[in-house]
Design a protein around this nucleic acid. Sequence first.
DNA 1: ACAAAAGTGTTCCGGCTACACCCATGA
DNA 2: TCATGGGTGTAGCCGGAACACTTTTGT
Lengths: 226, 226
Amino acid sequence: MVGMDFVPLGLATDLVILTVRDGRLQVLLIRRGIPPYVGQWALPGGFVRPDEDLETTARRELAEETGLSAERIHLEQIATYGAPDRDPRGRVVSVAYLALVPDLPVPVAGSDAASAGWIDVRDAGELAFDHGRILTDGVERARAKLEYSPLATAFCPPEFTISELRGVYEAVWGTPLDPRNFHRKVTKTPDFVAPAGATTTRDGGRPAQLFHRGTATTLHPPMTRT
Amino acid sequence: MVGMDFVPLGLATDLVILTVRDGRLQVLLIRRGIPPYVGQWALPGGFVRPDEDLETTARRELAEETGLSAERIHLEQIATYGAPDRDPRGRVVSVAYLALVPDLPVPVAGSDAASAGWIDVRDAGELAFDHGRILTDGVERARAKLEYSPLATAFCPPEFTISELRGVYEAVWGTPLDPRNFHRKVTKTPDFVAPAGATTTRDGGRPAQLFHRGTATTLHPPMTRT
DNA sequence: ACAAAAGTGTTCCGGCTACACCCATGA
DNA sequence: TCATGGGTGTAGCCGGAACACTTTTGT
């Protein structure tokens, strides 16, 4: 370890912001307005400010892009991407974060609202920079975590039905699940979900109980992806 | 996104190099010789060079510290640590990597050999900077990955017995496993290990078959950590 | 012969799968 | 009354836990 010789480089965070809308897993993308990669979709992101923690940067970007006061939003680091040529403008190392947000009726209200939108992850196609790779890694992280954590509730509003929760799993994994077995698994696992007391008929049919998040942090044994 | 305004900061990689020696999980630590944290144990690491990929930096550091030509060594990113005050000398963001190495008869031969050593992870105590946190995260990553991947073989020489492999699991997890069930699980899982043909009596008792790594990348269903 | 470790067979049991079945509402 | 989704019961199966037992070496 030599001295504090700083190589000139930029440090940024990029965000994979996922939600479930219309039964499909979607990601928030920005249409680039300036070179490089003009006109292509990219992940939202920005540079880390002096004396700003990495997660603080990510939360700030999240708030800027979605209008969500990012307090209660699930946010976790994915990985850091630092290939020397990943940005043609110069050396930029990016710490990628995964954010899971509920399907709120809040429109995308960033500084560049007209050019941002929710895109089906299956339709995302080629992204700017190495953002395709980052998106893939983020989606895979989300898929894996649903197996052994109660993370799916991060996609749900504060109160939700079991079948809404199942819809999250089905959208993220892209596979149908047995409603009856899913119901049993989720309600019998201690502290996975907690009954809210009320019921709703918003999904049609017999009224469904409403639940909110439980206190569990892991799922033993895990949910099985078929 | 403004221009390429680079905040002055250092970008480094730190390494959690784990091995299994004498049936215990050990980590390679460096005794610091210069401030800050003089005399305390720290993870090996160093700054990223211009135009150097992050993993290249990590492999270079690994080779410098262990003398291992790091080609065949398992190396994966853990996470990036960027709290503004994590280094009292200035802003240094560190990308941490996890390396798993076999128990080779190679002495630790770094630039600072006298002050480096293999330390039981349970005895590591307080480390310099936020390295304690990084070590914890790295060890937890290794523990988790043994469950659902054939990663334990990364701790083994090219040819190993089933009980040596079990020894890895027991050392990393800190719990004993049933030798009979472990043997069945490992040998019945397709492509987890492949018979090498030879046998050895180096563990005493009846000769044991030697195996090498299989081609499997995941373990379904996973190994259970009791 | 005996100790020690390798490897096999077998029983028990918990959890998942698949599906039959009943419940409570809106139209 | 019917369609729709909510929720329960249950039989069968798969895989892990536990452990008795046989095999093959060194001393």
